[in-house]
Design a protein around this nucleic acid. Sequence first.
DNA 1: CATATATAATTAGCCGCCATACTATATGGC
DNA 2: GCCATATAGTATGGCGGCTAATTATATATG
Lengths: 168, 168
Amino acid sequence: MNLEQKYQALLQEAQRRQLPDVAGIRLCFQTLSLASAIDRDCAALLTPHGLSEGRFVLLFLLDAASEGLAPNVLAEQAGITRATVTGLLDGLEREALIERQANASDRRALNIELTRKGKQVAKKVFDQHSRWIAGLFGNLSTPERQQLATLLDKVATNLGASGPGKTQ
Amino acid sequence: MNLEQKYQALLQEAQRRQLPDVAGIRLCFQTLSLASAIDRDCAALLTPHGLSEGRFVLLFLLDAASEGLAPNVLAEQAGITRATVTGLLDGLEREALIERQANASDRRALNIELTRKGKQVAKKVFDQHSRWIAGLFGNLSTPERQQLATLLDKVATNLGASGPGKTQ
DNA sequence: CATATATAATTAGCCGCCATACTATATGGC
DNA sequence: GCCATATAGTATGGCGGCTAATTATATATG
């Protein structure tokens, strides 16, 4: 239940038009709506800390690398372009969570490190986040989780020429 | 399998840190990755027709309303803001799929109608789209579909203060 | 050594979404 | 009839993603 508004509208129309496999369409919309709802909740948790999901990922990667990381490495690990990393770093820098440091040996390169504040925020947010995720799937039993994973996988096989990871 | 790059990175780190309920985290990422992959595939189908998902929704709503609709009605039905509708209509107009028509009785109001081209594209795309969605969940048996729907629902109950539909 | 090529980061411009603020027009109450 | 308020659509500016182009620096090769 609880489809997003737009999907409800589309689904109603699909029913009215007697499109084939309305049940499949419904399932698709249900999956997408759930994911959107998760994203929305996630964003709501992060914004009070000046974070978006993208920034959060970089924060996490940086927190794991005690010596800091170069932007191109962040891009690779996060699976986004370097240009996008530049934008996310701008945001993190504005929030004083990271610092861009010049690299002495290669003057093109930067090293990104967390500030003290960045480390504090990271710690707090990771705690909050893992509790939140745990709660999300907390009312599924182990076999239910297994089932869900299997079913999601089964759907994923029908996807993409590309599929996650891209064709390039 | 086949998590998006960023989720793979996050998951690895979660494992390394021995966060609680890594399995839950994995399941969460799997759900999000599947939804992203669906969105990506969807977008790939739509772009050749000059459509995005947002534009597609409006096209669908307009195709269902033979007399045309006002932008504010579109916004309400699609569950997006009027401002966003303006932007989407700009795109649809650029592609010559819709026309904005002045309303004689209320000079603030517009009526949006599909052009001939708009109707043609609508027809073609809806066909394509319903076949695509049907294929997506086509390899699930009826009981599997039922299971999946139930499990997704169960997860959804843990969501949101807001949940789909918003708190306002 | 000079020049070509590769690489690092950024900028610029596009898209779709949002929230906020604005303009024009309608409408209801006095 | 006039003014306050509500409504319709849009402009503006932000975010986060993308691609393509730009600038600076490194490196490899003739």
